[in-house]
């Protein structure tokens, strides 16, 4: 993702667990320091052990597709078809879309290796570009 527009100095991630400004794009999670449970969203306490101390961990950018669906019918404004899946990233389950693959069951199969990638969602009036993530087949 290279911002070519001269008035586009800033990029923001679609969600705050996508990190764009610290090396290659990657996901992070809040990890409970007492039991190791990981959360992408802000938590008041750990749902597994009730602990309240969290640390930030990086999530592996490659993983295995554990399940998927090909959504053909979605809410207004959502482009279809798209592949939604759960990716096992070295023991942490991540939810995301698949990209750079034909959205059909000949090309998408559970067990396939995938890796993290990013794409632009567009630019707002202030020239800020929003970036989302997806997974693509890994060689």
């Amino acid at each position: 993702m290279t911002g070519t527009a001269t008035s586009s100095p800033e990029r923001v991630p679609l969600v705050d667990y996508l990190v764009l400004d610290d090396g290659p794009p990657h996901l992070i999670a809040h990890e409970c320091t007492s039991c190791g449970a990981r959360y992408f969203d802000r938590r008041n306490a750990c749902a597994s052990c009730f602990g309240t101390d969290f640390t930030t961990v990086e999530i592996a950018t490659e993983g295995t597709l554990r399940t998927f669906t090909i959504v053909a019918f979605a809410a207004p404004g959502v482009e279809v078809p798209f592949v939604s899946g759960v990716i096992d990233c070295d023991g942490t389950s991540v939810r995301g879309n698949l990209t750079n693959v034909e959205p059909d069951s000949d090309h998408v199969q559970t067990g396939m290796k995938v890796r993290l990638t990013t794409y632009s969602l567009g630019t707002d009036d202030q020239g800020t570009e929003a970036i989302s993530f997806a997974f693509e087949p890994a060689p």
Binding site: P13, D16, Y17, D41, V71, A74, G77, V78
Partner: peptide, 17 residues
Amino acid sequence: GRYGAVGPTDGRIGTDT
């Protein structure tokens, strides 16, 4: 929200349907 999302995530980060 709790993911600090700058836009809808349904259809972009998996599906909510």
